[in-house]
């Protein structure tokens, strides 16, 4: 049973084609990894899924449980797309509180729990402008699941995390999977994909191709990955 389905989706920017007739289905309750070089269209794919962009051709289909109003954004989707912006002069807790106020679904206690789950202290008075990149990434993760979102669209969720935090977040994502949540994530680290994902997709030559998890070890030494690790 698929939560998200892409049918012949194409998208171009200023005449440059990023995705061409891409079709894919992402099953419920699984973790799907998407790989591809920088600029290959991973973030664009996520924006298309969330309804922030429309495809030039094709259709993005969302499970009716999450797509109540056609033309709108899907509900119960937790997202990290690009690098989320925060109010730099506020604390991490205040930033999450501001986001939680929009839907008004959760209590202060639940915000605190989400922060603690990613290893951030909700009581610190440290402003976000003083946060390290890793702390900002943790804050981005916390907002993506704090309202018990059932589908997580995570663009490079392990960016800037140290080894311990990476292990903590991997553990957290596996817990979410066990709870039946669906996760789409991108990562440049084959290890993340291999440890977490049930299926792996690669954006290559404007196509989204399903790969085998066993291929990941060899792809770790491919020229594309080597180039990315240099960056």
């Amino acid at each position: 049973m698929s939560v998200i389905e892409l049918r012949q989706v194409s998208k171009a920017f200023r005449g440059v084609s990023l995705l061409e007739e891409v079709s894919a289905e992402f099953a419920r309750g699984q973790i799907h990894g998407i790989t591809g070089p920088n600029g290959s269209g991973k973030s664009v794919l996520f924006r298309l899924i969330c309804g922030f962009m429309s495809p030039d051709h094709g259709q993005v289909l969302i499970d009716p449980t999450y797509q109540k109003s056609p033309g709108g954004y899907p509900q119960h989707f937790g997202i990290i797309i690009d690098r989320p912006g925060y109010l730099a002069g506020r604390t991490g807790y205040e930033n999450l509180q501001r986001l939680a106020e929009i839907r008004g679904d959760i209590s202060s206690e639940q915000i605190r729990q989400a922060m603690e789950a990613v290893g951030l202290s909700p009581d610190t008075r440290q402003k976000v402008r003083r946060y390290s990149l890793g702390m900002k990434q943790k804050l981005a993760l916390a907002q993506s699941f704090m309202e018990h979102q059932q589908v997580l669209i995570l663009d490079e969720p392990f960016n800037a995390l140290d080894d311990r935090s990476t292990a903590q977040v991997r553990e957290l994502l596996l817990t979410f999977k066990a709870q039946g949540r669906t996760i789409l994530l991108t990562s440049h680290n084959p290890e993340d994909i291999r440890r977490l994902c049930d299926s792996v997709w690669k954006i290559e030559d404007r196509q989204l191709k399903q790969g085998a998890l066993t291929d990941l070890a060899s792809s770790a030494t491919s020229p594309i990955v080597e180039k990315e690790s240099e960056v």
């Binding site: 049973m1 698929s2 939560v3 998200i4 389905e5 419920r28 309804g51 429309s54 495809p55 094709g58 259709q59 993005v60 289909l61 969302i62 499970d63 009716p64 449980t65 797509q67 056609p70 033309g71 709108g72």
Partner: peptide, 21 residues
């Protein structure tokens, strides 16, 4: 703009059969 997006957005057929809006 929202209505135009309906043409490229729909619902999967997992629950209600083919239901593309």
């Amino acid at each position: 703009r929202q209505n135009l997006r309906r043409r490229t957005q729909g619902r999967t057929s997992s629950i209600q059969g083919e239901n593309i809006l």
